[in-house]
Amino acid sequence: MMNMAWKEMKRNKGRFLILGSIVFLVSFLTFMISGLANGLSEDNAGLIKDLPEGHFYMTKEANKTYNLSRIDNNTQNDIFAKNSNTFALSIQMGFLNNHDGKQQSVAFVTSTQSKWFQHVKKGEVIFDRSVEDNGIKIGDTLTNKQSGGKLVVKGFVHHSKYSHVPVAYINMDDYKEMFRTSDMQLMYIPGEDKAPTFTGLQAFSKDQFLNTIASYKAEQMSLNMIIWFLIVISGMLFAIFFYMMNVQKMGLYGILKAIGVKTSSLFRMMWTQMAVITVIALILSIALSEVFNHMAPKGVPFQFTFEITFQLSVVFLIIGFIGSTLSGLQIKKVQPLQAIQQGEM
C-alpha cells in the first residue's frame, strides 16, 4: 500500500512531533542515566571491573565481606602452586597527608606479582592520575598518619579507582606495616572456566564479587531501576499515544476496511510510524549523549558506551513495538460496518 504512514505524519506533523520529542527526551534521559551508571560503576570499582573475567576468593568466615577475610601464607602458597597467573591482593581505605598536612583519601591496594596491578618498591607509591588535580606530583613525599610511614610518589596510572577515590598502589611490606597484618584479603584466579574449590574459601565471579560491595550494589541497582522505569514509561507512551490516535481513527479504519484495505496494512502503517519516530528520536538522543560525553564537567562520572546504548535502543524499539501493537489491537476489532452509518469524522 502506498506510504500512508508517511503521508499521515507529514499532514499531522504537530502530533507526531510531540510524540517524537517526548520519546527523544525519555530516551535521552535513559542514555544519560545509563552513562552515569556506567561512569559511577567505573568510579566505584574500576579497579575490579577492568580485570579480566575470573574468580575471587575470600574466607568463608568473612561472610562475603572482603574486609574481614584473612587468607594466610600457607593457603596462598597452596593456590599459587596449583594455578598460574594467580595473585593475592588486599584493599584498605585510608588517607595520606602531604607536607603541609593536606589530606588525600585513597584506596590502598597491594598485591603479589601480577600483570594487572602496579608494583612498587618499599617506601614508594603509584597513584591513580586523578590525584594530580589535588596538586600531588611525582617526587612528593606523603605520610601515613596511622603508621607514621612515609611514601614517595613514583608515578601515575589511568583509570584506577575504587569506592570513588583514587587507588594508591603500595608495597606489600608497607601494607603489612600500616595495617598490622601479614594475611591478604583476596585471591584472584583469572579464566572463565569453573572456579576450582579450596577448603575454607568461597569463590565469587567478578559480578558476584562486585555485588558483595554494598555501596556498589545499591548504586547500580537504583540507577538500573530508573533506567527500566524510563523504558517502561516510553512503552506506555507509545501505547497511550497510538491508543488515542486509533480511537480518533476508528471511523477511518472502518471505511478503509470496507473498501477492502487489509487489517495487516493498517498495522504496518502504525508500526512504520512508530519505527520512524523512535529511530529519529534515538539517533538524536545518541548524538546528544555523545556530545555530552565530551563536554561533561570533569567531576561528573559520565561514561557513554556504544554497546549499552545500542542494547537500550533495541529495547526501546521492542517496547515501542509492543506498546503500539497492544493499542492497535482495537484496529482488529473495528467492523467495516460500524463506520458506514456513522457521521463524518
Partner: peptide, 17 residues
C-alpha cells in the same frame, strides 16, 4: 470488495491526510 465493488456512503469518509 477491494477489486470488484465500489462504495459510497452518506458521508464521504475521505482519508483526511
Amino acid at each position: 470488495r477491494a477489486g470488484k465493488f465500489g462504495f459510497v456512503f452518506q458521508f464521504a469518509h475521505l482519508v483526511t491526510f
